[in-house]
Design a protein around this nucleic acid. Structure first.
Lengths: 201, 201, 201, 201
DNA sequence: AATGAATGAGAGTTCATTCAT
DNA sequence: GATGAATGAACTCTCATTCAT
């Protein structure tokens, strides 16, 4: 009875198929991050996801495509977080504060993020380096700040996004691997650097 | 006799052993950069170096140690370039100009650099992430600037080196992979960002 | 009701079940001939037949049994063609002419025949090499000719059937794969060889 | 001492490398014949040959190439046997007697022959169906007989070789699988059929 | 010191077969 | 009866590492 009640109120009982897909992606993310692309074993990913190896192949053409799906999902999650209306409505340089907080927050929750981001740019994929979506999102925010007169007019938003992405990524990786500084200090550092570099005065 | 005669006339008769080591490192650098750590084959490295596979094992304990040697050599080369007295005697922010020029120059000559730098931080080694030597060198320059009152006194040279390293690396990778901007503009970008962020006023 | 009505008007209302069986056999013949036993995939056969993989298993215990059914059906078809009363009533050596025409005709219509015949003798089945039914039919015709005094009395019809089968099969395979000679010439060759070898004078 | 003596008189002490190659070919022939191409396992071939799997790959690019080598060697052996000057100097139809004896002899020694010959025509190879060399050799003998006026002038040696090859192969396969007739009788059958079909009068 | 043939563990991938729906 | 997602055993092939020469 209770079960039925819950089931009826539940958002829409995920079909078994989607649950498995999610579990596979989760396990893949974990293993790729833990071992690296080559050292990660499909058999281990399958075991961790609670499915058979063959089941992975029903969804992805191979190991590389699986990594692609993982990276894509991760980027989407991150870019989604950057689309919060709250962020867009906050003026620079305060917006830096929010963005950097979210970034470090994300890094804290997703301990897999760093290794995966670093894994992305080379090799496996021909079509578009991973991180492109993230850089595009950063670029959009910067352009918004330029247009609104909150960031320096002479900036090239696309180029600055590349550098900023590198700077933030370095901070994330250091944070995830060393935890040498309290979260807030890392954020402060990034905000101050960004503000001095990018903001008007 | 004949051999000796030739040897005596030669400029500085590198023992055959050292020549082979150099060739192995060169080939390893090329292959690791081209294929990535796992996809690089020792047999191919040996072929390119003109030695037998077994010869590599006379010098390095295995594949991982070979990569370690490659990275170490590359870092040493880069750090050496940062030790030019000319650099140390130039005041900030002009020193940024020289450093960034050298960096981009290095990236141009060593097309293997980017992939290798990205390869370094994770996995293979327990003992110290690669890039540490580079970051230490950057940190030393920053501290020098701080001490001389040319950079902002409140900066933490070690932390700033991390962020700066990430920013510069991003620029290098983009430059090596896309060449979307003339070399000088890339340098200018980096100099301007560094100056605004780090220099006094 | 509606279904029944339609069914009653249909020419000879093959139950849906039999139609599917026929489609499966057809698809299996095609795929086995095209790819060979091992390379043929049940999933592809199912797709081509327009059924689900599981449906095949409702009719055949497995892949091997499916091949058995295909071969058996093919042999039956061929043997049936050899039972035309017209053939039995024609005296040798004219009967060779008709038989060889039918054989080559069959090879033309059933391009799958050759590969399948060659696939049959080894491996898959313990129970009786494929081709046995065909050889038995040839043997019966030869014995008929011997009994009627049209073929050499000292022949062993069973043994001769083996050799004749090999000879004809070679001609069929060559015809199907090379088409190096017009159909009629292939027939003439076979007729002449058979006549000289088997017929009286 | 003795060893040295033997070694010096020996035809040329097969290098270890060639011995292994021979063992691999032998094992491959056995396994391919026993199981068929697909069911034969490289691991089993390696085990039987007393080498590691990787060793096979030092010599052949893959399973298909290994089969190719086996078939090629087998054909060469057979064709070599057909080049005995004794055969060429014997007139037809006595030459049929010798040839058929050799063929059946070969089949007796090489129990792998039949399955392999049947395996050859389809699939694996694009370049020339296996058996072509054998058919070419038969054709050459037939042409020799025609030229010398011992076989019927109107014969097409190439076409007749195809049919004869099929006939003989059928006899071989039957012999190898059933042993239903003494060797000599099989030979006699083949000789008689060939003679009546191909010889003058 | 140098060689490179040999090794064999281990990976990705495939696909016949099953069974809950 | 029909389905097709799921299974997982078993394959071929690779390549770091070794060691007799």
């Amino acid at each position: 009875m209770n079960d039925i009640h819950i089931a009826m109120n539940a958002p829409a009982p995920k079909p078994n198929e989607q649950i498995k897909t999610a579990k596979i992606l989760e396990a893949a993310k974990h293993q790729f991050a833990k071992r690296g692309f080559d050292a990660a074993k499909l058999s281990e990913i399958a075991r961790e996801a609670g499915v058979a190896v063959g089941t992975i192949y029903l969804r992805y053409a191979g190991k590389a495509e699986l990594l692609g799906a993982v990276l894509s999902e991760m980027e989407s999650g991150f870019c989604g977080a950057m689309d919060d209306p709250l962020i867009w409505s906050t003026p620079f340089p305060q917006r830096f504060e929010i963005i950097m907080s979210r970034v470090i927050e994300f890094a804290d929750e997703e301990e897999s993020l760093g290794p995966l981001m670093a894994m992305a740019p080379y090799g496996v994929f021909d079509s578009g380096r991973s991180g492109d979506k993230v850089r595009a999102k950063i670029s959009a925010h910067l352009q918004d700040g330029i247009d609104k007169g909150q960031l320096r007019a002479e900036l090239d938003s696309k180029r600055s996004a590349i550098l900023a992405h590198g700077m933030v990524e370095a901070a994330m990786i250091d944070h995830m691997m060393n935890r040498s500084l309290p979260k807030q200090q890392v954020i402060d550092e990034l905000v101050e650097a960004s503000t001095r570099w990018l903001a008007k005065f």
